[in-house]
Every structure is written in structure tokens, then in C-alpha cells.
Write a protein that binds this DNA or RNA. Structure first.
Lengths: 124, 124
DNA sequence: CACTTGTATTGATGAGCGTCAACATAGACA
DNA sequence: TGTCTATGTTGACGCTCATCAATACAAGTG
């Protein structure tokens, strides 16, 4: 089934890529709604196994990797699958089946938006 | 008591500020140890209330705020205190009592290190 | 000293999460 | 069709977490 809920940090822009959900953390206090959205992403990265999986995908050639390439993180196969699903639901990864294998990929714009969230004040 | 454990993402550098714990996520797959460290920080920001508290401190004048300035986030006072403690243990905030009030502050270098962790590959 | 305000801790409760074994599904190939 | 490999889902278990009321601690004021 493909009813996996995706509640991304970002919303698709008309042109290309995505647009950040929230202003930088340091710009002004986040509202409850903004915090709810952004916390979902941080939470998804808040588990060591998920962080390794995410890093493995993000650092793989072309920003994309087969599950078989990244599943050596010390937990069982169902657990890997479970964590990848969580990362997908958080909007951090997308997946696509090509023949026998399933490939996960990270949108560069997602990384960019996360970086902006943590941006330092320009003036300093 | 002041035995609050602090397990920071960063370690103090000799010169000034701090040095990042880990290479950018996209550079290479994180090791288990690196992931353990970095996930602690993401986990700390993975709760909406904590994220709002952190943002409130980070965006406050001088990167510092009294608890009384930021505790209007819709939860009880003990819960606010609990979350601030968690942020402290994650190395994201420091605190200091000055007279009646307690001030929390965020190290700019911590924000910078987090940003680097999410940095995009230079070539792209 | 007593009293008030600001902040931290304790203890309890209910919800959520990470993990696995077992099973299910999808595609490739003979 | 049957079988093999790759991946996802189900259900259960133990543990962690977010929250609160009650209480304790700290510092100021009278």
C-alpha cells in the first residue's frame, strides 16, 4: 500500500524543490505550529540508527541508495525497514522500487531547509 | 546541585568556542559513535516544547533569556524546568543564576556546528 | 524571623518508541 | 507454476518519555 503519511518539513513549491517551513530558530521564537512541524524532523534524526541510515543515503553516490547498501547498522532487517519508514513519514527520504530493489533518496532541498533553520544571525 | 550531566555535541577547543563532533551528514556514512553523539542533539530538539524553548532563548536579546521570559509555552512550570534541563544535558544550553532569576543561554558555536552537520556538499 | 516569588526535584501515570520473531508481499527466474 | 531473494507488516515486549501535582529549594522583602 502507498498510504504512508508524509508530513514534511517542507511544502512543494510551484517552481522547483521546496520551501522551508519555518524561519531560522534565532530569528524569533517559533510558534507552536512551526515547532510541531520542525520537531518532527529533528525527532526523526534523534535516533542513532535512523541518523546512520539517513547519513548513509545522503552520502551515497547520487544521494540515493538501495536498502541492501545501507542495512548494515547492527539491527534486524524489520527494524531497518521500520526506521526507513519513519524517515519517509518525516519527509526526509523518498523511496522508489526498481525491480527487485528499493531505493531511498534524500532531497537536497530538504537538507538546505534544515540548514537554514539552524542559520546564525547574519549580523552576529 | 550542579551534577547535571552534559554530553555535548561539541568539545571545547583550545582557542575559542568549540569544534564539531562529526563531519557533515553527506560526506560519508556516520559511524555508530558519531551517530550516538549527534542523535542526542537532534533528539533534544525533537520535542515541540523544547524546540520552542530553545528558539525563545536563541532569538532573545544577547542569546540569553530568563526562564520567566520564555516559560509561556502551554505546559506547567515543572515541565518547563524539565525540558530546560534536557536541553542543558544535550549541551545546547547553559544556565546561570543571577539573583532571583535563572538565565539560559545558547552558545553560537553550537548552532554553527549543527549547521555544518547539515551542510550540503560543496560541489552539488 | 515570616512571607512571597522564581525555579528545581520527586514520584506517579499514561503514551510512545525501538526492537525482534514471525509472517506477508513483491519481483525475478526457471 | 514453484522457488528464491529483497523488503515491508504485524503483534508483542520492555523501556523511555512528557506531563502533572506536590513538594523542596533559593533569594529577595518585610
Amino acid at each position: 500500500m502507498s498510504n504512508t503519511k508524509v508530513l514534511p518539513l517542507l511544502e512543494p513549491a510551484d517552481g522547483q524543490g521546496v520551501v522551508p517551513c519555518c524561519p531560522p530558530l534565532t530569528e524569533r521564537p517559533m510558534t507552536a505550529e512551526e515547532a510541531e512541524t520542525a520537531a518532527r524532523m529533528f525527532k526523526a534524526l534523534g535516533d542513532p540508527v535512523r541518523l546512520r541510515l539517513f547519513s548513509a543515503v545522503a552520502s551515497h553516490e547520487g544521494g540515493e541508495a538501495c536498502v541492501c547498501d545501507i542495512s548494515d547498522v547492527g539491527v534486524s532487517q524489520p527494524t531497518v525497514s521500520h526506521h526507513l519508514k519513519k524517515l519517509k513519514e518525516a519527509g526526509l527520504l523518498t523511496s522508489e522500487r526498481r525491480g527487485t530493489w528499493v531505493y531511498y533518496r534524500v532531497e537536497p532541498s530538504v537538507l538546505a531547509a534544515m540548514g537554514k533553520l539552524l542559520a546564525l544571525p547574519t549580523a552576529a
